[in-house]
Design a protein around this nucleic acid. Sequence first.
DNA 1: ATGTTGACCTTGG
DNA 2: CCCAAGGCCAACA
Length: 107
Amino acid sequence: MTPEEYVEAVLTLVESIPEGRVMSYGAIADALAERSGRNSPRQVGTIMARHGGGVPWHRVVNSAGRLPPGHEREARARLLSEGVPLRGDRVRIDEAGWTPDGERTGE
DNA sequence: ATGTTGACCTTGG
DNA sequence: CCCAAGGCCAACA
């Protein structure tokens, strides 16, 4: 799988995240691990930073539910309007966490 | 080829 | 809450 295809795969997956739900960089990397041959949350983060402008990037947070640096205000507002459960400025990923299988990350 | 860096993750002080 | 260490993968100097 070429780098461009991996980028597309990531963006497509992010677009598939339902409103009110979120996914962590690690979960995304993990979900594409089989198909991409690589598993690196950092790469997903880099991809989001560079090509995340066209997708619901605010639905992607780190494992601790932390919002993307520099976009915290924006992300928080959007998540709030979607009804994503927040604890302060962090997402309750145990409740809003989502995977392509429709299961919650916690559990 | 080596070293650093990055919207990361987990474990452990 | 903050920091460090070891893994992870790709881009860049």
